[in-house]
Design a binder for these strands. Structure first.
Lengths: 143, 143
DNA sequence: GTTTATGCAAAGCATTTGCATAACA
DNA sequence: TGTTATGCAAATGCTTTGCATAAAC
């Protein structure tokens, strides 16, 4: 990865997770803490469905609805970013910084690229009357 | 759209569709011709599921499997491009040229951008040992 | 007559929904 | 008590699969 990050440590224990949630205006319930832990334990991109599976496997049993509700809440509160890969699943990213992606077509792995690593030039003409909300770049690579 | 295209006319009749298919090494069955017609009739991005619905609505009845098989075949034979938008559906593009996308976040509409309209600079370092297969840029715009 | 394409119905998978229960302030 | 969170089970939507039939060469 490109040496980015938000300054937070990659791994959280339960107490740290609770603080993080509170800091974002989220009531730290047992389930939300568990989800945060799974999410930030392995700093990587994770599908909602996979998170549900992992959460169930752990000691804290959590329902599907709660997982989906919670992830949505986390995005709303700025704790996560939702990605746009066509996996027919919701993919979340603990990396909050604006960044691009390197997609390994063979393995399906996704890596982050620092925003500064890719230069994109968008002429005003292409936007017309619309305003630019964001630029997503995905480099597809093989091997 | 950005004045691109592959030189083909936007609208096909049945005979033209059959020729197009043959030119790509595809046996022009009744169903495949019908699918091509729907696909190229409205030159735009279309989801597999929507194509299925439109095809059924038309005079030629086509099964789900045939639609999905055919779209896969068309991609394989270079008649279509499959896109990576996270709509939880397969989206196909009749525009074969390498190009980028303008995504209207409000309406969900997708527009094509000519490859020349966006300049992207990818330093060699970010690729490591992998080789670049493609660059996908999506501009998210509002309003 | 063998290969290739199509159709049908069911299964699979991720997500969403409605409503009842539980936790919390 | 009233609000907020969770759980369960069923429904939804799109895609995939297996196998039988039909069409093409």
């Amino acid at each position: 990865m490109g040496g980015m990050g938000t300054g937070a440590d990659p791994i959280l224990n339960a107490d740290e997770a609770a603080s993080l949630l509170r800091a974002h205006g989220i009531t730290p319930t047992r389930q939300r803490v568990a989800i945060s832990t799974v999410l930030f334990a392995c700093r990587q991109h994770m599908a909602a469905s996979e998170l549900f599976r992992r959460a169930q496997a752990g000691d804290t049993s959590i329902s599907r609805s709660t997982v989906y509700n919670t992830l949505e809440l986390f995005v709303e509160k700025g704790l996560l970013q939702e990605l746009n890969f066509s996996d027919r699943s919701r993919i979340y990213d603990t990396n909050l910084a604006s960044h691009h992606h390197l997609y390994h077509v063979d393995s399906g792995k996704i890596e982050d690229l620092d925003i500064s690593q890719i230069k994109v030039k968008v002429p005003d003409e292409v936007l017309g009357n619309s305003s630019l909300v964001g630029v997503d770049v995905t480099l597809r690579v093989a091997g």
